[in-house]
Nucleic acid binder design. Structure first.
Lengths: 251, 251
DNA sequence: CCGATTTTGTTCTCACGTTCACAAGCTCCT
DNA sequence: AGGAGCTTGTGAACGTGAGAACAAAATCGG
C-alpha cells in the first residue's frame, strides 16, 4: 500500500510522479470547490478565494497545487476551468470507472440512488447481493443481481472498484471474491478490518467511529472536571455486556 | 478547534489530558477489536494480538494505549474487559449521547435504521426534515418530525450531536440552526464545507471523495505510462460541463 | 519602459505522527 | 530464591505534513 517512490533527499524534482497522500485526499475537495466557482460563473480565482471555498488555508492550497505543476499565473490567480480539468485528470475522473456495489441493504439502496455516484467519473455497473429475496428487485433503473456472477461482471465491464455495504460477517469473504475476480480498489462500509493482498487499495468509511470521535471531544467540552477517575478494579458497572459498539451499516 | 494545550517541551507528564488526534481516531477501532475478542471468549490479549485485530502495528498500538495510562501487564498482555472499559470511558461511550438526524432522504433512512447507532453510546432522539410530505412518516420505530422544532428538541433531550444528511443546498443553514439550538458536535454527510463557530466540532464523511481517492491510485496502477500529458492549452475535451463531481448523498 | 502591485511557487522551520529498539517489570519454572 | 522468557511502556530517530515568509513573475498605470 505504500506507494512511496524511493527518492534520495534533494529537490523533489517536480513531474517525478509522487503526490503526498495528504494532498491527494484534498484534491477532490479542490475539484468540488472549482466546480462550484465555475457554476457561479467565476472564471478566475486566487489561491485565497479557492482556499476559502475549500476550507483550507491558502499556503497549503498553493503547495498542494504545486505538486501538480504550475497551473496558476502570478499576479492573477488560477483559471477555474483549466485548473479544474488538470485536477480532474490528475485524479483520474476524466475517464469513467466501473463500480459494483455489494450488499443491497439500507445503505446499499442509498448509495445506488445516490446521484453523486452517477456523475461523471464513476458508473455503477451492477448491484449485487447473495440474498435470493433481493435478487431481481429493481433499485432505481437497475436490477439486483446475484453476487455469484461477480467474476463475469468484473471481466465484462472491466470493474476496478468495489463498494462493500454488507454486514460485518460476510465482508471479508465478499472482499476476497472481489479481489479474486480482479477488483483492485475497495471502499468498505462494513465495520471490520479487511485484509487484502498487496496491490489492492482499500479505504474504510465507518459511521460509528466518526460518532465516537465526536463523543470524545464532546466529553471534553462538557465534563472537563466531572470525569470519573480510574476505578481501581474493573468494576464493569453494567458494561460487561456492552454490545458491539459500532455495528454494521449494511443490511 | 485546536485542542492543543500549551505545553513546554519536557516529559509529557501523563494524566495531563491531551491525547493526540491520530490516537483518538484509532481508539474506536481498538474498542471494536476488543469487543470482538471478548465475544470470542478471549480474556487476555497481547499488543500483537490486538494490533492484528485492529489492523495496525503493535508499536503504534502500545504507544496509543500508553496515552491512556498503564493498563497492561508486562509479560502477560492486556485484560480484554478491563481495557475495553477504560477505552470506552476515555471515548465517552459509557454514557449515552443524544443524536438528531436532519434530512430523511435515502441516507437519512439508512442511518435511522442502522442498528449500530442504537447500540450503547448513542441514542437517536429525533428524525427531522423540512419537507411536509415527509413529516409524520414512520421510520423504524420513530416518526419524522418538523425541523422547525429543533430548538425544543435539543433543549428537551440535551442533544449534543447532530447528523446532517440533507443535500448540499440547505446544509449550511441547517448547520447554523443546529448550532444556534445548542448542538456542539456535527457529523456532516452533505458535500459542502460547513463553517461553524469555535467550540463546535465538525467531521465530514464524503463518499465521492473516498471514491476519487481510490480512482487516483487506480489510475496509477493501470495507466502508469499511458497518462495523457498536459495539453498545452485548456482543450477542455468535452469536460467543461463536468457536472458537480461529488454530489450529495442526502435526499 | 519602468516601477508599483498583486499573487504564485518554493524554501525553511516547526510540529506531529510513526517506527525502532530496549530497559523495566511481570510470571513461571527449577 | 533466582534466572529465563515474555511483553509492556517509552525514549529517540526518522519521516511527513503544516504554516510562515519571501523571491520570482505577471499585470497595470503612468
Amino acid at each position: 500500500m505504500t506507494r512511496a517512490s524511493s527518492r534520495r533527499p534533494g529537490p523533489p524534482t517536480r513531474t517525478e510522479r509522487g503526490i503526498p497522500e495528504a494532498t491527494v485526499a484534498r484534491l477532490p475537495v479542490y475539484l468540488r470547490a472549482l466546480t462550484a466557482l465555475s457554476d457561479s460563473g467565476i472564471a478566475t480565482a486566487s489561491s485565497e478565494d479557492l482556499a476559502t471555498a475549500a476550507g483550507v488555508n491558502s499556503a497549503k492550497l498553493r503547495k498542494d497545487l504545486s505538486y501538480l505543476g504550475s497551473y496558476g499565473t502570478r499576479g492573477v490567480g488560477y483559471d477555474v476551468e483549466y485548473l479544474r480539468y488538470q485536477i480532474a485528470r490528475e485524479i483520474g475522473v476524466t475517464q469513467d470507472w466501473a463500480v459494483v456495489i455489494v450488499g443491497i441493504g439500507n445503505l446499499g439502496h442509498a448509495l445506488a440512488n445516490y446521484s453523486g455516484f452517477g456523475t461523471r467519473g464513476f458508473r455503477i455497473v451492477a448491484l449485487l447481493d447473495a440474498d435470493p429475496n433481493l435478487i431481481g428487485e429493481r433499485v432505481g433503473d437497475m436490477e439486483v443481481r446475484d453476487f455469484a456472477q461477480i467474476e463475469d461482471i468484473v471481466k465484462a465491464d472491466r470493474v476496478s472498484i468495489g463498494v462493500i455495504t454488507t454486514p460485518a460477517g460476510p465482508a471479508q469473504e465478499v472482499c476476497d471474491r472481489l479481489v479474486a475476480a480482479g477488483v483492485t480498489s475497495i471502499l468498505n462500509f462494513a465495520p471490520v478490518v479487511l485484509s487484502v493482498p498487496a496491490g489492492v487499495d482499500i479505504r474504510k468509511v465507518d459511521l460509528s467511529i466518526e460518532l465516537q470521535i465526536l463523543a470524545y471531544h464532546e466529553q471534553r467540552k462538557s465534563g472537563e472536571a466531572a470525569l470519573p477517575e480510574v476505578p481501581e478494579l474493573p468494576a464493569m458497572n453494567g458494561l460487561t455486556d456492552l454490545p458491539s459498539v459500532g455495528g454494521g451499516v449494511g443490511a
